[in-house]
């Protein structure tokens, strides 16, 4: 996902005024290409940009007791004049109360830790799958995808049954004599980590598997021929080559984990601070749509800025290599 975009089609150099059939053909091709690109752009415009602008608009106005529960951003006054009522007060409010900043930081921390854990669990799985005999690979792939056939919510609920005090995990550990008192895992941050790692594991494994499977194994043979031991070859050959898969997997886990609401709500305790929960409280308990919209806009920025910076850096290094 982070590699540089495909090289732009060779720019048709401004040719002499002579209109050759070749140029006309290229013209229609270009038009077709734009049409094809237009579809996803329209999609983004309708389902991403338009809702975002609505949220942005609400974040600039004031809360009031009415339907809908916020004031108007733009009103029409006489003589065709329009009045603008926006202010950045809601954003300043987020800065005033440490709750919001703490929630953002805590979400980033939980998401980052979970991403690292998911990578540590996911990499060996993907590696094992990619190096397994070819006839097993489809079955292994299915095992990774299979949990998607059950609702995400039900799978998270199942973890409540496993982790609670009288749950399966505590029962098993007690019977094995490993613990005498049941462990308190449910309603703590540990349960949130378990929930996120479990739920997002396929998003880490699938891109890694796709990447590792394509790897040219003769490179490892070459390393061995040159006297490199397998463990070292893994670190200097396999891992760097799978970097795009690692990055893709990490983004796919990190981004949704930052805004996660269901897992901390069901598995986390009341101390688990995540921006998704803070947003919920703001929207439903305070009924303050403007402030919750401001929280959402900032969340988007928090996620988009690092992604953009990262992509730039990737592009630059790709260009430097080329």
């Amino acid at each position: 996902m982070s590699s540089s975009p495909p090289p732009a089609a060779p720019a048709t150099a401004p040719q002499a005024a002579v209109e050759s059939p070749e140029v006309a053909r290229q013209g229609t091709q270009k038009l077709l290409k734009y049409l094809v690109i237009a579809v996803p752009y329209l999609w983004l415009l309708a389902f991403f940009l338009a809702p975002f602008l609505i949220v942005l608009k609400i974040s600039l106005v004031e809360v009031r007791v009415a339907m809908p529960p916020y004031s108007e951003l733009i009103t029409f006054v006489e003589d065709g004049w329009i009045a603008f009522h926006g202010s950045l007060e809601n954003y300043l409010w987020l800065w005033d109360d440490p709750l919001y900043i703490n929630s953002y930081l805590s979400s980033l921390k939980i998401a980052a830790t979970s991403t690292v854990l998911t990578l540590l669990v996911g990499y060996p799985i993907a590696y094992g799958m990619a190096r397994a005999p070819r006839r097993w690979r489809f079955a292994l792939l299915m095992l990774v995808i299979l949990p998607f056939w059950t609702s995400f919510l039900i799978r998270v609920y199942a973890w409540i049954g496993i982790l609670k005090k009288e749950g399966l995990l505590n029962l098993a550990l007690t019977h094995l004599g490993l613990i005498s008192e049941p462990l308190t895992i449910l309603n703590t941050d540990i349960a949130v980590y378990i929930g996120i790692v479990y739920s997002y594991l396929p998003f880490m494994v699938l891109p890694l598997y796709a990447n590792l499977e394509k790897m040219d194994l003769s490179l490892l043979e070459a390393a061995a021929d040159l006297g490199c031991r397998p463990i070292k070859a893994f670190w200097v050959v396999t891992v760097p080559l799978s970097m795009t898969g690692i990055v893709a997997g990490c983004f796919l886990v990190f981004i949704p984990a930052v805004g996660e609401f269901v897992i901390p709500d069901l598995l986390g305790g009341s101390e688990t601070l995540m921006i998704g929960k803070t947003l919920w409280t703001e929207f439903f308990n305070n009924r303050d749509w403007p402030v919750s919209s401001a929280v959402a806009v900032i969340l988007l920025l928090v996620l988009i800025i690092p992604i953009v910076l990262f992509q730039r850096q990737q592009q630059r290094s790709a260009e430097a290599e080329a």
């Binding site: 009415a66 339907m67 529960p69 929207f283 439903f284 009924r287």
Partner: peptide, 8 residues
């Protein structure tokens, strides 16, 4: 809270 959000 859910009811009120829907109503408003």
């Amino acid at each position: 809270e859910v009811l009120e959000t829907k109503l408003l």
